[in-house]
Simulated scan of single mutants.
Amino acid sequence: MANIAAVTDAEFETQVLKSDKPVLVDFWAEWCGPCRQVQPILDELATAHGDKITFLKMNVDENPVTPSSYRVTGIPTLNVYQGGEVVKSIVGARPKAALLNELADYIA
């Protein structure tokens, strides 16, 4: 989880909702196996496409307010925010090719 910074409930509005470029937030938890599976893929995508889309992660156990307000009920959930709104939501682990396809509008 080296490449992706963490965001907290307190920082969410300034770092995500008010960002001038799209932001992908990975809602995850330490105990979540699929979250650990998707993490290296997200690290690769952040390294390759971090200039076009910001990658952040939020631990749902440590920050319950934001996931609850966006009705995040399953993890990993990857939400893409643009202009203060959720423009894409990906629930569950996906292989790299599927994530690239899902995020094509934001990383092209």
Rank of each mutant, 00 (worst) to 15 (best):
M1R: 07
C35E: 05
P76C: 05
D43Q: 14
P40G: 10
A98D: 11
P22Q: 05
D61L: 00
I4E: 14
D51M: 01
V23T: 07
T14E: 12
K18F: 13
Y81I: 11
T73N: 15
E44Y: 09
G74I: 10
G50L: 03
G83T: 07
R36A: 10
T8Y: 02
A108C: 01
Y106T: 04
L103V: 08
N79T: 02
I75M: 09
T66E: 10
D26W: 13
I41L: 06
L99K: 04
E11S: 04
E11N: 05
L99E: 06
D26E: 15
A48P: 02
L42W: 05
T66H: 08
A98F: 01
E30N: 09
K52D: 04
W31V: 07
V38S: 09
L17A: 08
E62Q: 15
A48S: 12
D20I: 00
C35N: 04
G83Q: 02
P76V: 02
V60L: 09
M1C: 05
Q82W: 01
S69Q: 15
L56V: 07
A97D: 06
T47I: 10
L42K: 14
V80K: 08
T47R: 14
D61N: 07
L103A: 11
L56I: 07
T77H: 08
I107T: 11
A10T: 04
G33A: 10
Y70R: 14
